[in-house]
Design a protein around this nucleic acid. Structure first.
Lengths: 203, 203
DNA sequence: CGTCTTCCTGACCATTTGGTCAAACTCTGA
DNA sequence: TCAGAGTTTGACCAAATGGTCAGGAAGACG
């Protein structure tokens, strides 16, 4: 049942995954119920379980299916162009994802805060490999004096945290800023642009 | 039952709150069960409910009881001393909390990621007030040219996110770094010190 | 030592929840 | 149109879970 064969399957599997993203990202794995997902998807609970063998299967498919697109911005970081611009534009791409795909961000946040029981292998495998590769690239820039010398792994962590913060801690950010729309994302972009540009530009 | 009256009450209420912190911070409110908390606390489930009227009451008491100490580092940020040093030392205090009190950090992270249903009033009230006050202090420094001009609210958000990341996303950080002990916290401290010092020091 | 309060527990309950299943319905292609 | 595959559902189940309660055990205290 990996790839849908009929139109109905395609439509319903899509609806289920979208509903599950909505519910899992808001309540976490244990906090979400099949009834909630079914209602959001507009299907009956037994019908959910016709398309997916279990609650966990839905969750796993969501996580693994989204991880790739989640890491795309980091993959785009490459050697062309000015290093500072490269990194800053990575920051802004990541912030843009937090704005447009907050549910995905919260899905991963929930999973990782709770110990990442289902994606530990991915973290220690492909994710670590990708990060190590990009960290080496950044380290090269630092050695060449093209950016200020900063620990590349922790630099990447700081980029992840500062950008995803606007998705994962959305209610706190809004509560403190008194924000009603998404305008504060532009302020965040301007802030992060300055912060990283100042920190990274070599003396 | 707000303040314990006997030794037994004090001991058992303490054990319950500690166990609840352990379990809630790891599984979130809905993911935690009274049986788990009872087992960790070394008490029977009915005995839990002798000391607290409900699961939710334990959670609320934990959250409100810990919020104060959680915000202490920010309160310490004041006008004395060099502004850059003040802010950097706030960053390091916050990172130290992430190292020594990761459960508290994850408790709040879980709560906020899931929409902060139980502490929204606190966020929009006392927390917002405190942040606004400190933001004004920072804005004053910027206007006086004593630090680089950076949006103070977003600066505070970035400090929260970069430091709490090491508690909330601990398993990810460890997985990527291959860390077995807490040594990477020292690297993180060195990194954040440089990052904020470079970004904040006026030209 | 006796009694009064505090503390603790086994048994129990109602609800929720993930999941099953047989039967029915609907769509598609010959 | 008709058979067979694909789709949907109501009824049901077992386990888990938050919570209750009557009564017993253990301290505190005169």
């Amino acid at each position: 049942m990996a790839e849908p064969r009929t139109r109905i399957q395609q439509k319903n599997r899509g609806a289920i995954l979208d509903a599950a993203l909505e519910v899992f990202s808001q309540h976490g794995f244990r906090g979400a119920t099949l009834d909630q997902i079914a209602e959001v998807a507009g299907l009956s609970k037994p019908n959910l379980l016709y398309y997916f063998p279990s609650k966990e299967a839905i969750h796993v498919e969501l996580l693994s299916g989204l991880l790739d697109s989640w890491l795309d911005p980091l993959r785009e970081l490459d050697g062309a162009g000015d290093p500072v611009d490269e990194i800053v534009s990575y920051v802004l791409r990541k912030l843009e994802m937090a704005r447009t795909l907050p549910r995905e961000s919260r899905l991963f946040a929930n999973e990782i805060v709770q110990g990442a029981p289902r994606i530990m292998e991915i973290i220690e495998g492909p994710l670590k490999a990708l990060v190590d590769e990009k960290a080496a690239l950044i380290a090269g820039w630092a050695e060449a004096g093209r950016i200020a010398p900063l620990d590349p792994h922790h630099l990447i962590f700081s980029i992840w945290s500062t950008t995803q913060h606007y998705a994962d801690f959305d209610v706190q950010v809004r509560g403190i800023l008194g924000a009603r729309d998404d305008a504060h994302f532009d302020d965040a972009a301007a802030f992060l642009d300055r912060l990283y540009r100042r920190a990274l530009t070599p003396d």
